[in-house]
Design a protein around this nucleic acid. Structure first.
Lengths: 199, 199
DNA sequence: CCTCCACTACACTGGTCTGTGAAGTTCAGC
DNA sequence: GCTGAACTTCACAGACCAGTGTAGTGGAGG
């Protein structure tokens, strides 16, 4: 909220739908998915429930829109950082860790995907597929950047970096460990440089 | 379920209460906290709702009992492994990672504490305090074991190991990465040995 | 014998949940 | 001036929610 530069899921949404998605994103993240009712979302969006259902079909539809929007924005932020960092291949591998602090400082509620995962136990729920794809994408990104950098055993190392990354978010939120992002980054750098062939 | 060796939170519970706690633990973990109603828990325990409220006071009371039981059992398992591993200080640091695989193979739902955290946004919720204490305890355990082992910068390293540990659970569940536990353990070993003064 | 305790049976309160139906309003663009 | 899209109003369905009140049963231990 308070973001003047249009918050949520822009492309071809009606004004009401955009407001609904913004409000729902905030509420789903802060309070949890099951804990927020569609009546609340509609009321806080200044919209009727009818409009909400006309735009998004169901609460699940709105939930998927929420997850996809966050996924898209997060990937875009990483992509733009990667374009700015074209020289040093090790620093490129660490880009997702560089994005972490600004992500974590926005809230103490941790990762919206991990949190949503906790509330979606059914394996074939459409929202869950967005979540799983997001984490698998990050692992693949690490893998590709490691291959670029010429690291040995990029497969194992990608999983290790993924774990460090996700764990930093969790530790930061739950253990109230504000140093987690920086610590994870330096651990990642150690692991990556140790996997580079001596030159 | 199907555990003959008494599952949940033993100490001085009535037979009905024990069954309630076992069933609630299973349902809270598999389906999520908000998604499970007290009627379901009572019915599946073969008990009336009256009994549930007589024993646990409220759904929140039952939830706290669930979290405390899991916390106690998990700490006990680590403590027993630590007693079995009295020699090698590096292997002692890695004990929490050794416990991970058996933990993760039991389910694909990840960490019950992380999941519960996602559903408990209020900072002063009694259940949340159990969760936060659990993660802080693990960080402190890493710290003490690192001091024992004579590692440099045990503070930072403890946070890194905590992140690796928590991230392995998340990656295993969400990214369906079955190798996460092993990979995290080997990353942890690298980081620890690199922090030992050359001898 | 009697008391206490774990537990049952079951109705009931007041509230919230997602989702729908039907009719009407506002307004931009052709 | 008309159409169509976005949106409002409001009532309503049917299920589920946590939690309570009252009355009664069965068995173990003093």
């Amino acid at each position: 909220m308070t973001a003047p530069t249009t918050g949520a899921g822009d492309r071809r949404l009606t004004p009401g739908a955009r407001r609904i998605l913004e409000v729902a994103s905030e509420l789903f993240y802060r309070r949890g998915i099951h804990a927020v009712g569609v009546d609340t979302i509609a009321a806080e969006s200044g919209v009727t429930k009818r409009t909400l259902y006309d735009r998004f079909g169901s609460k699940d539809g709105l939930l998927v829109a929420y997850l996809e929007t966050r996924d898209r924005r997060w990937r875009a932020r990483i992509a733009s950082r990667l374009e700015a960092e074209r020289e040093d291949p090790v620093r490129r591998v660490l880009v997702p860790f560089d994005v972490l602090p600004e992500w974590l400082s926005e809230s103490d509620r941790g990762c919206s995907f991990i949190n949503a995962f906790a509330e979606l136990p059914e394996p074939d729920h459409p929202g869950r597929q967005v979540i799983v794809a997001e984490k698998k994408w990050l692992r693949s990104l690490f893998y590709e950047l490691l291959v670029e950098a010429g690291a040995t055993r990029p497969d194992d190392l990608a999983v290790q970096l993924l774990s460090l990354h996700e764990g930093a978010v969790v530790s930061s939120a739950i253990a109230e460990e504000s140093a987690a992002a920086g610590a994870a980054r330096s651990a990642a750098r150690s692991l990556v440089t140790a996997a580079l062939p001596a030159r």
